[in-house]
Design a protein around this nucleic acid. Structure first.
Lengths: 254, 254
DNA sequence: GGTTATTGTACCAATTTGATACAATAGTCC
DNA sequence: GGACTATTGTATCAAATTGGTACAATAACC
């Protein structure tokens, strides 16, 4: 595995692998844990700047492949639910100060008009992952890479606050129309867990019985025989997405 | 007004104004006329290739400004409803053959590795315009620029069929949630005209009385006193969007 | 003034959604 | 084992929304 330094900060001040210039990818990676919606953030080493995981598009890969590569590097898992949601293309999207600081701290030699100082158009992707499967991975330029509650997270650098907001809005509006929420849970889950997920994403309480009715009426779930062992009360059923049913659902609803 | 030739095909084989390399914009411009949904297409001069109007992003403008500029050039009108809907980023998005042919026909000198032969990432925008306000404008590289019924249009070059399909799907799904359809009609219109617009976009018949009830319940329309003079029957009311009401609607529904 | 086509609204039935009630448990405590 | 508790699954009813029909109003034409 190459370091970021080796990949992007070579002696001739160009990325080692040819990339699409002035195009970047920023990923808003959502996870769900302890009844909280989390996102994966990183902090640059020695610099007071938090950011969304991001990267660039190699000349020989599609933007989706690039986003998947970036995600896999950060989370260690493949086959993540991933979708582009918006392009951020303001003319002043250039962040020389932060990049200068990062390069200085890391003893990276730079010159005026370094390629990173250019204006960038950034394609926003959001990812939904099973929190329990992910181990956030540091790279050589960052000192923290971890999960943060969306209600309580560090201030982000660049225009990343705006990117995050747009991703969250997209997630909310896709929650009912697509079967998007399930990607944030393990393969099997209870109705209560699913409801709690919906409630945190939507930011409001839902009526239990109606939620149950609504979800079951989607006809995409399969009831697993096994039951739960927990508190002193009736044990909930455990559910699992039935792939065939999901396919049928998507076919009729799109 | 500069010609395309002057702007993009200079003696040193570079665009005259600095652009973001390998990024393009493609516009799906919808209009509504004779109860048909139309899009604006152009045909390259002397080449058997139809395409969506497109262009590039100058270094000193945002992608939205670029899209607006491209649209204004094509339609002659400003303040168009415009929204990005998807980014097309396959790694094989390069179309050397067509560009070569176009340049040859137009006596444009080119070399191997011309900038247009590169792989491009294209940002799709869709626009909704008042058909009656638009006069499609030719440029020096095209020989046809005009409206085509979406049910009966020429085969498109590049990956433009896919771009068109995605734009249409986006338009359909935004029709009910946002107040998007009104942009395709003149300032004032009858309920029948609006219904016919909805029916062609959605591709299905709607029940008149329920449609009327639904639209009126949005509480965004203002009834204009004047009535219509047409056939031998009761005259319909004429409606107009009430900007204040629209604002209130969008505030409560987003 | 009668005819015709179309419009606006009222109305009822069917469906969906909001909210409550209640029986069925899986534990705990005794 | 039996009472107790918290939670789950389902039934049920009311309220709201949507589907579909009926009908009066009316603008042009004859």
């Amino acid at each position: 595995m190459q370091t970021i330094k080796e990949q992007y900060f070579t002696d001739d001040h160009k990325p080692k692998i040819k990339i699409i210039e002035q195009v970047s990818i920023d990923c808003v990676i959502f996870g769900f844990h302890d009844n909280q919606l989390k996102i994966l953030l990183l902090k640059f080493k020695g610099v007071d700047a938090w950011a969304l995981p991001g990267g660039f598009v190699f000349h020989n890969e599609s933007i989706e492949e690039a986003a998947n590569r970036i995600l896999e590097n950060r989370t260690g898992i493949k086959d993540i639910y991933l979708e582009q949601f918006y392009v951020f293309g303001n003319k002043n999207r250039q962040y020389r100060e932060v990049h200068e600081e990062v390069m200085n701290i890391n003893d990276i030699d730079w010159k005026e008009n370094h390629w990173l100082f250019q204006r960038f158009i950034s394609i926003g992707f959001y990812a939904l992952v099973d929190f329990s499967k992910v181990t956030p991975e540091l790279d050589d330029l960052s000192e923290i890479c971890g999960w943060y509650d969306i209600e309580d997270m560090p201030n982000l650098a660049f225009d990343h606050p705006q990117i995050f907001q747009k991703a969250l809005a997209t997630l909310r509006s896709n929650l009912d129309t697509r079967l998007v929420g399930f990607n944030l849970l393990p393969k099997t889950f209870t109705m209560g867990e699913l409801q709690s997920l919906y409630e945190t994403i939507l930011g409001k309480k839902l009526i239990r019985t109606n939620f149950q009715r609504k979800i079951l009426s989607l006809e995409v779930l399969e009831r697993v025989e096994k039951k739960f062992s927990g508190g002193s009360h009736k044990a909930p059923y455990i559910y699992r997405l039935d792939d065939a049913k999901v396919e049928a659902f998507l076919k009729t609803n799109f």
